[in-house]
Design a protein around this nucleic acid. Structure first.
Length: 696
DNA sequence: TTAGGGTTAG
């Protein structure tokens, strides 16, 4: 640029204007979208000025403009400007990439990077640092690794931006060993580098390592910042216990909105919904994320009434505009509670908001119908989708699995494979699980065997857990146990709990005891696992160990989920809790249930007191069985629905042996079809027989 | 260069 040319003066003015616009928008990026729109005006004016002043050929100016547009979210204008620059330089490419990644358009960023490679444009350190997050978010492992190699070959030397980007990328791939290796070899590290490794460990479930790195960081004289606090909040060990809050208070970020929502999330994950709600209430201006988190909190804690009330408040009083995540959360809640009526309403909202082409929403709708209405409705929605991804197919396959249609699940799986859609890890979990529910042992084993050979998938712990379940439930416990010993992975809680379940079903207490020992060493932080352990001991008559397991449950600050059953009658949801005598309809239900028990006893039912795994008298056991939530729900359902109609119940835990037995008798004596969905699958009781053929 | 809410599995 010739500074003496007549244009130079106006050029300087324009640079000034653009800088002004740039800085104002930069500040705006943290505030509301409305303000952003208002402030793009000077930017458009500057842009217009550049065009009329014949300056649109100036690369420097165009690069600046692109950056300014991208910074306020108008990345598509950035792309147009880029396409019109005749002599693009490396900075233009880098700014385009940065605009795309800053606006979450990772796929396009990777495409642009590929185009650069094709055009033999060599990226520099800044370009690489810009594009690495995109590879991480997209899971483009090979591309990421090749860029890492390229950077090493070019021998640029240490660069904190690139190296931190690499740590973050490998963490997102789940390759913590490589991430750590890059981190350890860094000569210069800043707080961002530390945060990247800490967040990597914490998000990949290595809480201990995350804390270790945090301590090491502090020993290096770095106190950490808000990002460090965010990463530590999500550390698993912190969730259930001591010190999340005190750490945050000490860090001084307690009132930050992001920290607050992260805290809410960790309380919800630890099943401390009231603590989460306390934080929610303290937030002055609640955003969609906070509202959505509470929706999940209420539904996760099994409280449908509060879930729905919260949703109505969100829609009514607060006029919060729903987005796809909040709708998925609600659909998933409807699915858990078997709330068909509300589920249909959510389906309507999906159409109203125009999210019918969203694939995530699609899976959630299919799942809701599969759980509430049946496979016909699920299939109808699936059939109407313009585009279907692997997750949609997986949802359909697991739907078939839940109703015990193993062959349909396998057929759907083969159909998907035949269409050229490669199954992913979850597909295999869904299909293996479907085989397990249907008792299709040989078919399941064959699919598992073909995993590596045909679909190039390396079995993970979940796959092994499915196969262990498949073998164990069919009585091949020793085969299941040898599989866990021969696999290339360290067995986790899931594997041992599958084995324990098998030992419990087949009353193999000797092996059960051996596995229980290993199980205890793993210190599971899920209440359900301790209950299982306690039940296995109880069945073996080892009451001391059974009691100990329940004590460790308490000492680990874990809460057992109470047994809950739900029933929707004419759109109204009724909840029943085990042993709940203060239910508004309790007396009515109790009287009816007493008569019901007498009737089915006359038909041959005898309470299965072995299902009560507590060291109490038989009378107390019978009373506990009488008050199981399913039985209260069945009685209420028979009372409140028309003779001959189907009684639908959803249960949060797995149905117990005694309720399963009683349901069979009820279906025969009362000539009613009972459909009970438990935590695992559907049981359709008809004429004294269950669709699961007592295999569950 | 790092950060909060979501679907399919047991």
């Amino acid at each position: 640029m010739n500074l003496l040319s007549p244009a130079s003066n106006s050029w300087r003015q324009n640079v000034l204007k653009i800088r002004l616009a740039y800085y104002s928008t930069e500040k705006m990026s943290h505030t509301s979208i409305l303000q952003k729109i208002r402030d793009t005006r000077p930017l458009h004016q500057a842009h217009a000025h550049i065009i009329v002043s014949n300056l649109s050929e100036n690369v420097f100016l165009c690069n600046r403009l692109m950056n300014a547009y991208a910074s306020c979210g108008l990345v598509s204008i950035s792309q147009i400007i880029f396409s019109q620059i005749s002599d693009k330089n490396l900075v233009s490419w880098t700014i385009l990439l940065s605009g795309l990644t800053k606006n979450d358009r990772f796929f396009e960023a990777a495409e642009v990077f590929n185009e650069m490679m094709v055009l033999k444009i060599r990226p520099n350190e800044r370009t690489i640092a810009t594009v690495l997050p995109a590879f991480g978010k997209l899971g483009r492992v090979l591309l990421g690794k090749s860029v890492h190699c390229y950077w090493r070959r070019r021998n640029f030397g240490g660069n904190v931006f690139v190296e931190t980007g690499l740590v973050d990328m490998y963490s997102k791939f789940g390759c913590m060993r490589i991430a750590r290796n890059v981190f350890d070899n860094m000569t210069v590290r800043n707080v961002v580098s530390w945060n990247a490794i800490i967040s990597g460990y914490s998000s990949n479930g290595y809480g201990g390592e995350a804390l270790q790195m945090f301590n090491w960081m502090r020993r290096n004289g770095l106190p950490g910042d808000i990002f460090t606090a965010m990463s530590l909040i999500s550390v698993e060990d912190f969730r259930v216990g001591v010190g999340i809050h005190s750490l945050v208070v000490r860090s001084g970020y307690e009132n930050d909105p992001l920290i607050r929502t992260a805290l809410m999330g960790s309380y919800i994950n630890g099943n401390f919904v009231d603590d989460a709600y306390r934080i929610f209430e303290e937030i002055g201006k609640k955003d969609l994320v906070a509202w959505t988190l509470m929706l999940r909190g209420f539904s996760k804690s099994g409280n449908w009434r509060r879930t729905l009330e919260h949703f109505e408040k969100m829609m009514g009083e607060e006029k919060i505009a729903l987005d796809y995540v909040s709708l998925i959360t609600m659909l998933s809640a409807c699915s858990c509670f078997g709330a068909l009526e509300q589920g249909r309403r959510m389906h309507g909202l999906v159409l109203k908001i125009g999210l019918q082409d969203d694939l995530f929403v699609g899976s959630a709708v299919i799942d809701m119908y599969a759980n509430c209405a049946g496979m016909m409705d699920a299939k109808r929605y699936f059939g109407g989708m313009v585009e279907k991804d692997v997750a949609c197919w997986n949802t359909l396959i697991s739907g078939y699995g839940m109703i015990g249609c193993g062959n349909e699940a396998i057929d759907t799986f083969l159909k998907m494979d035949g269409l050229g859609l490669s199954p992913d890890e979850s597909t295999l979990v869904s299909v293996l699980c479907a085989c397990s529910h249907a008792g299709l042992v040989e078919q399941g084993l064959r699919i598992f065997d073909q995993m590596t050979k045909v679909w190039n998938l390396i079995p993970n712990l979940k796959h092994y857990a499915c196969v262990v379940d498949l073998l164990g439930r069919s009585g091949r416990i020793n085969d299941a146990y040898s599989l866990t010993k021969s696999m290339h992975l360290q067995p986790g809680v899931e594997i041992y709990s599958s084995l324990l379940t098998a030992c419990k079903i087949h009353k193999n207490f000797e092996l059960g005891d051996e596995i229980a020992q290993k199980f205890v060493e793993l210190k599971p932080n899920d209440a359900g696992h301790y209950i299982l352990l306690s039940n296995v001991y109880a069945l073996a008559g080892n009451w001391d160990c059974a009691r100990m397991s329940r004590v460790s449950l308490k000492s680990n600050n874990l809460k057992k989920n109470p047994g809950l059953s739900y029933m929707e009658i004419n759109g109204e949801m009724f909840t029943f809790m085990a042993s709940q005598t203060d239910h508004p309809h309790y007396l009515e239900i109790r009287d009816f249930l007493q008569g019901l028990i007498l009737k089915i006893k006359a038909a041959g039912y005898e309470p299965d007191t072995d299902s009560v795994l507590l060291d109490v008298s038989d009378d107390v056991k019978r009373d506990i069985l009488f008050h199981h939530s399913e039985k209260l729900a069945i009685a209420f359902g028979l009372m409140r629905t028309k003779p001959g109609s189907v009684v639908r119940i959803t249960k949060n835990l797995r149905i117990c042996d005694d309720c399963h037995l009683a349901s069979k008798f009820v279906s025969k004596v009362y000539a009613r079809v009972l459909i009970i969905k438990d935590a695992n699958r559907f049981h359709v009781f008809r004429d004294g027989i269950c669709s699961c053929r007592d295999w569950w």
